[in-house]
């Protein structure tokens, strides 16, 4: 998609991935109810940055401490941090995160995705777009936009 043009941030700082979640005995116990927790949401979000062949985690776009989930109240809040303050992809990253969560969480959840305060030039505008249900739905009707989102959500192992 950005083929031919120069990347906005060609040489990002790369952060270490935070290993696999360790299995506990409770995870394997049939009778225990595992609540949906921050780490689980964080793991769901190991998706690709449209600019880089790296995952959002490796770029520090999504950090576990910026993921807030409340299973009982069925709500999820995500703050993401664009790689650079003028990143033109911010809306797209936010949209990908939102779509990924819509596809991966039970529909009882209310999903709130916004930019980490103070990390992007047009923070408010992007937040507004992401919060507007109808605009999200309209965006996904746009097949070229959906194509880019789907590319971000295609797992790299295949």
């Amino acid at each position: 998609m950005s083929g031919g043009t120069r990347l906005e941030n060609a040489n990002p700082v790369i952060f270490q991935r935070s290993g696999e979640r360790l299995l506990t005995a409770a995870d394997e116990d049939e009778d225990v109810q595992d609540p949906i927790d921050d780490r689980e949401i964080f793991d769901i979000l190991s998706i690709n940055d449209p600019e880089h062949p790296l995952s959002l985690e490796e770029l520090n776009v999504v950090e576990q401490i910026r993921v807030k989930v409340n299973d009982a109240e069925s709500s999820v809040g995500i703050e993401f941090t664009p790689t650079i303050p003028h990143c033109s992809m911010a809306t797209l990253i936010g949209l990908s995160i939102k779509v990924k969560l819509l596809r991966s969480l039970p529909d009882r959840f209310k999903i709130d995705v916004h930019i980490t305060p103070g990390t992007h030039a047009s923070e408010e505008a992007v937040n507004k777009q992401l919060a507007d249900k109808e605009r999200v739905a309209a965006a996904l009707e746009n097949s070229s936009l959906l194509e880019v989102v789907n590319q971000c959500l295609t797992s790299r192992s295949i």
Binding site: L23, R103, R108, L146, V148
Partner: peptide, 25 residues
Amino acid sequence: DDKKRMVRSEAVQARGEWFLIGSPG
């Protein structure tokens, strides 16, 4: 919405892939 996390994580992966079938991109 399974009560076990390991089940949910498989479901997330499977459902994600099925969403991509026949969809642009």
